[in-house]
C-alpha cells in the first residue's frame, strides 16, 4: 500500500487572509482519513483545492504519484467528489442527475445505463429513479448527491460533510455505505465536525484549525496527546482542548 494523495505546502489566501496555511497531508491507499475542524477551519477550501475547483495560492497536490494539476485529464477519473452543497438539479429526475454527472467521465450507452442503476441501487434510491429530485427529502437528496459522484468508480472518494442536516437513519446509512466503499477498495477522505462519526469510521484523523493541521493520528493517539488515561476522555473533549472553545465567526 502506497501513498495515494499528498498535498505539498498547500496554501490559500483570500484577500490577504490565510485560509489554508502550508498544509502537508498524506493519504495512504485504502484508508479512511478523517479531517476534523470547526466551522471555517478551511476543510472545504482544502478539498476544493485538491479537486481543482479552487486554485491554490501556493503549493501543489500529488495524486497517484503525479502532479495533479499537470495530469488532471488522465487522473480526474480516479477522483469522486461529494461536495458539501447539494449539487443536483431539482428539475431532473434522479436517474437523469446521475446520468449527467456520470457521463462526464466518458461513460455512455449501455454501460452508462448500468452504472446509473448501480449507483442508485447503492444509495437505496433505485425505486425512486423516475422521481424529480426536487420532490426528495433532505436525506434522499444527500444520497442522490453521493450517487452522482460514484458512477465512474473512482479509487479516491472525497466526502465533504455528507451528513449535515439529516436524520440518524440516513446518517447511519451513509456511514455504512462509506465503510462498504472502503471495503471494496476505495480510499476515503471524510470531513466533518461530528466527532462520533469520524471516530466510528476513520482509521486516521487530522484536526484542522485556522487553516493548519494541529494534530494527526488514530483517535487513540489523539486522545493520548491530551491525557494518559484515554478511557476517560471523548474525542470531542480532545477536539475542544486542541482547538479551544472560542466561537469561530469570521
Amino acid at each position: 500500500m502506497g501513498t495515494i494523495l499528498k498535498t505539498k505546502d498547500l496554501t490559500k489566501k483570500y484577500d490577504g487572509r490565510v485560509v489554508v496555511d502550508n498544509l502537508n497531508l498524506t493519504i495512504e491507499e485504502g484508508e479512511v482519513f478523517g479531517l476534523l475542524g470547526p466551522n471555517g477551519a478551511g476543510k472545504s477550501t482544502t478539498m476544493n483545492m485538491i479537486c481543482g475547483i479552487v486554485k491554490p495560492t501556493l503549493g501543489s497536490v500529488e495524486f497517484h504519484g503525479k502532479d495533479f494539476d499537470k495530469h488532471r485529464k488522465e487522473l480526474i477519473v480516479e477522483l469522486g467528489y461529494i461536495p458539501q452543497e447539494l449539487a443536483i438539479h431539482g428539475n431532473l429526475k434522479a436517474w437523469e442527475n446521475v446520468e449527467l454527472f456520470t457521463s462526464l467521465y466518458g461513460i455512455g450507452g449501455a454501460e452508462l445505463k448500468k452504472r446509473i442503476d448501480e449507483s442508485l441501487e447503492y444509495v437505496g434510491l433505485l425505486e425512486k429513479k423516475n422521481d424529480y429530485a426536487k420532490t426528495f427529502s433532505g436525506g434522499m437528496k444527500r444520497r442522490l448527491n453521493i450517487a452522482c459522484a460514484i458512477g465512474h468508480h473512482p479509487d479516491l472518494l472525497i466526502f465533504d460533510e455528507p451528513t449535515v442536516g439529516i436524520d440518524p437513519q440516513s446518517r447511519n446509512f451513509i456511514l455504512e455505505k462509506i465503510r462498504e466503499s472502503n471495503k471494496n477498495g476505495a480510499t476515503i477522505i471524510y470531513t466533518s465536525h461530528y466527532m462520533e462519526e469520524v471516530e466510528a469510521i476513520c482509521s486516521r484523523i487530522a484536526i484542522m484549525d485556522n487553516g493548519k493541521v494541529i494534530a494527526t493520528g488514530t483517535s487513540e493517539e489523539l486522545k493520548k496527546m491530551v491525557v494518559e488515561d484515554t478511557s476517560s476522555i471523548t474525542l470531542e473533549e480532545v477536539f475542544l482542548t486542541l482547538t479551544g472553545k472560542k466561537l469561530r465567526d469570521y
Binding site: 476544493n48 452543497e85 449539487a87 431539482g90 462526464l104 467521465y105 452522482c148
Partner: peptide, 21 residues
C-alpha cells in the same frame, strides 16, 4: 437563465469543473 441559476445556486458548475470539462 434557469440553468445558469441552478448551476450557481446548487454548485453544479463546480462539479462540472471537477470532472475536467
Amino acid at each position: 437563465a434557469g440553468i445558469f441559476t441552478a448551476e450557481k445556486k446548487y454548485h453544479i458548475g463546480k462539479k462540472l469543473r471537477v470532472s475536467g470539462l
